[in-house]
Design a protein around this nucleic acid. Structure first.
Length: 294
DNA sequence: GGAGATGTTTCAAG
DNA sequence: GCTTGAAACATCTC
């Protein structure tokens, strides 16, 4: 489930636990989410410590721990964070529980694609060496264009999912970005002209901003099944129709196509999203696309 | 019972 | 050595 906005939602879920002492740590050491961590060290270091602050970078959550340590949580495909009462009893998929006074912070993940990271320093490489956020000034059109050239033969859909350049972008956001940009998901990255590359950069940021703005308010204590983790993206977004079998393009009314591209189910709007040809004139393609819009 | 699910890593082939 | 695509990971839901 979690990509940029959902990760931000779950970050806020644990906010009420910041600054409080961790009285006990409960975990299943053999759970796959600890495959990159020493669970014994994790328990030893976290017990008695406090989570001081949290931050989301791409799909990774980082918690600064008192005493100069860093706890990292990646939610994988099915991970989630919850705030529970003191009487909470872990279920089958609740792999990490931090007991505070009066409440419990819980990380659960049925599919176990998520992971827990831990280091006795505030900025270990897995935290400090992450690429620039798509909404940061360092995420530039030039960096995007250079990356597209390097991944020239890959379909642009697959390229948008590469976290080394587009941190936080997941499957539905990638489809949203391509739909807004008018680019066919199967277009080889190297065939995208300068104008379309710039447009891709702009829409990547627009979709990230819109998704973050629509993060649902965190209601402490809400039952898990009621938690609206992905909020409600703006009206008119592909998001609202991309899972429906008979979904139609919000802009053209044409039935959307769903197929597997870059190893992932992809939803796109025929007619609106066209394959670029190699060697297309950058400025011309940009102008003609802008003129034919709306 | 089968297919697919908002993710990453690994491995083999080009 | 780099790029690319498929498979693997584990479980649940439709």
């Amino acid at each position: 489930m979690p990509e940029l906005a959902e990760v931000e939602f779950f970050r806020r879920v644990w906010d009420p636990g910041l600054g409080r002492r961790v009285r006990a740590v409960e975990l299943h050491p053999e759970a796959r989410i600890f495959r990159f961590t020493d669970p014994t060290e994790l328990v030893a270091c976290l017990t008695g410590a406090r989570l001081l602050a949290s931050e989301a970078r791409g799909k990774l959550l980082g918690f600064r721990v008192s005493g100069g340590a860093r706890l990292g949580i990646h939610l994988g495909m099915s991970g989630r964070l919850d705030l529970e009462s003191a009487s909470f009893e872990p279920g089958r998929h609740d792999h990490l529980v931090l007991r505070l006074r009066g409440r419990a912070l819980v990380f659960s993940d049925p599919r176990l694609f998520g992971r827990v990271l831990f280091a006795r320093e505030e900025a270990p490489p897995w935290w400090s060496a992450l690429p620039p956020e798509v909404l940061s000034p360092d995420f530039t059109p030039e960096a995007v264009a250079a990356f597209l050239r390097r991944r020239a033969r890959s379909p642009i859909k697959a390229v948008l999912l590469m976290q080394e350049r587009f941190p936080g972008i997941g499957n539905w956001m990638a489809d949203e970005i391509l739909w807004r940009s008018g680019i066919h998901p199967r277009t080889p990255a190297g065939a995208i002209g300068e104008g379309d590359a710039r447009r891709l950069w702009r829409e990547t940021r627009a979709v990230a901003r819109g998704a973050l703005r629509s993060v649902a308010p965190v209601a402490g204590g809400a039952p898990r099944s009621d938690a609206p983790e992905h909020g409600d993206p703006p009206r008119g977004w592909l998001f609202h129709v991309r899972w429906g079998g008979d979904g139609r393009c919000p802009r053209t009314g044409v039935p959307l196509v769903r197929e597997r591209i870059g190893g992932r189910t992809t939803c796109w709007s025929p007619g609106r999203q066209r394959l670029s040809r190699r060697g297309e004139k950058p400025a011309g393609s940009r102008r003609s696309r802008a003129a034919s819009r709306g």
